[in-house]
């Protein structure tokens, strides 16, 4: 099937196998290796990208279903040579070790910062406490990090959070 989608600002028209996930399209066809395959089941978050501005597991999106969408991957977070503030904070706070979950953590954090709060972890939903460490931990729990860099991930995001 033929689809057209925009990835990191560039338009791509590709013929795809209907069984192909968006993640495999990015990695195996478009040469964008930033989004990672960790579980292929939406359980680890390593493949997180932004689809039309919302964070999503690209392993759970069939490529054909993203026809006409705008995708942003970790490769699209930089402005020219300039790192996104979250990317810079991740380096400074040592918010990764092996780096394999990092692109997903970054895309997830970018998406999360644009989402309304609070989450279920805050008792009274009428009072928005803002991005407390507890809120960040809850909202970032879809992205697993086996190296155990969570402490540093939370402090990196807290530095950038409004």
């Amino acid at each position: 099937m033929n689809i057209t989608l925009k990835v990191n600002g560039s338009s791509h028209s590709v013929r795809v196998d209907p069984r192909m996930s968006l993640l495999d399209l990015l990695r195996e066809r478009l040469g964008l290796i930033g989004a990672k395959k960790g579980c292929d089941h939406g359980q680890c978050g390593a493949c997180t990208v932004l689809i039309d501005g919302r964070r999503a597991n690209s392993c759970l999106a069939l490529a054909v279903a993203t026809d006409g969408s705008e995708i942003v991957t970790v490769e699209g977070l930089m402005e020219g040579d300039e790192l996104h503030p979250l990317q810079a904070a991740f380096i400074e706070h040592d918010a990764f070790q092996c780096g394999y979950c990092t692109p997903g953590q970054l895309c997830s954090a970018v998406g999360m910062l644009g989402e309304p709060g609070p989450s279920a972890v805050t008792g009274d939903l009428r009072e928005d406490p803002g991005l407390t460490p507890e809120e960040i931990r809850e909202r970032m729990s879809g992205n697993l990090c086996r190296c155990g860099a969570y402490v540093n991930i939370v402090s990196a995001i807290a530095e950038v959070a409004p």
Binding site: R27, A35, M78, L83, Q87, D94, F96
Partner: peptide, 19 residues
């Protein structure tokens, strides 16, 4: 020290085996 490969890792450019 900050990790010397930090920039390629946060930019999504670090190449793992299948990549």
């Amino acid at each position: 020290m900050n990790r010397v490969e930090g920039r390629v890792k946060v930019a999504g450019l670090a190449t793992y085996a299948a990549e």
